[in-house]
């Protein structure tokens, strides 16, 4: 192999950089797990809490497509109750504390959902 040393050194540097998220906690200590503060008006969510925690984004996307593209605005929750599919009107009415409810996790995980570029967050409500 020509320039074998240089190639291997380059590869090692690349791997070190690419695997940064995996070795960083070991060196820098464990990162605190974000704990969203859940305030609710209703007793029960439209899906079980564990499911919402893991895949609320998929539910939001399917609600979005159903409302915008099919004009279908009503959702049946597991117990048969009809819920209006609306981010502002249903989700955020029940969880009005966006900063603690949405942002605490999203910021910690460095995800940037674009919802609020258009949808109006509760604190902006008069």
């Amino acid at each position: 192999m020509y320039d074998g040393g240089k190639i291997l050194a380059g590869l090692a540097a690349f791997l070190a950089l690419a695997l940064f998220p995996f070795w960083e906690p070991a060196v820098g200590g464990r990162v605190a797990r974000p704990e969203p503060k859940i305030v609710t008006a209703e007793k029960r969510c439209v899906r079980p809490k564990a499911e919402m925690r893991q895949s609320h984004m998929e539910l939001l996307v399917s609600w979005r497509d159903s409302v915008v593209r099919q004009g279908q605005r009503s959702y049946r929750d597991p117990e048969g109750k009809a819920v209006t599919m609306s981010l502002e009107g249903t989700c955020m009415r029940c969880h009005p504390n966006k900063a603690e409810f949405c942002d605490s996790c999203h910021t910690a995980l460095v995800v940037a959902p674009t919802c609020w570029e258009c949808h109006i967050e509760p604190k902006e409500r008069a």
Binding site: E88, T114, C118, I120, E124, A126
Partner: peptide, 11 residues
């Protein structure tokens, strides 16, 4: 000035 909270704006 005062966006209606019940309808999204656009981006």
């Amino acid at each position: 000035a005062r966006p209606s909270p019940d309808y999204p704006t656009r981006t």
